[in-house]
């Protein structure tokens, strides 16, 4: 508490940095989410679907 005046600035700075990291983290994740899904995925699923339809 006695360090409050000195303490607020670095604390806000730390919070800002954490927020920036959070934003970038989501950006990094969303970048992949927004990539087009390779055809391979749906091909594999289609094959598995056909196999289960037969069985």
């Amino acid at each position: 508490m006695d360090e409050r005046r000195k303490g607020t600035a670095p604390l806000d700075e730390a919070r800002l940095r954490q927020r920036a990291i959070g934003v970038k983290l989501r950006q990094m994740f969303d970048e992949v989410v927004n990539e087009p899904v390779p055809d391979e995925f749906l091909d594999i699923l289609r094959k598995a679907d056909r196999k289960s339809g037969e069985g």
């Binding site: 990094m28 994740f29 992949v32 989410v33 927004n34 990539e35 899904v37 391979e40 995925f41």
Partner: peptide
């Protein structure tokens, strides 16, 4: 699928490994 790919990418840190992993998980 897009979310699985993104999660796999962060776990493996490698795009090719990640897609293999995401495909395995999907199956």
């Amino acid at each position: 699928i897009p979310h699985l790919r993104a999660f796999a990418r962060t776990l493996t840190g490698d795009a090719t490994q990640a897609d293999d992993l995401a495909q395995d998980a999907m199956i």
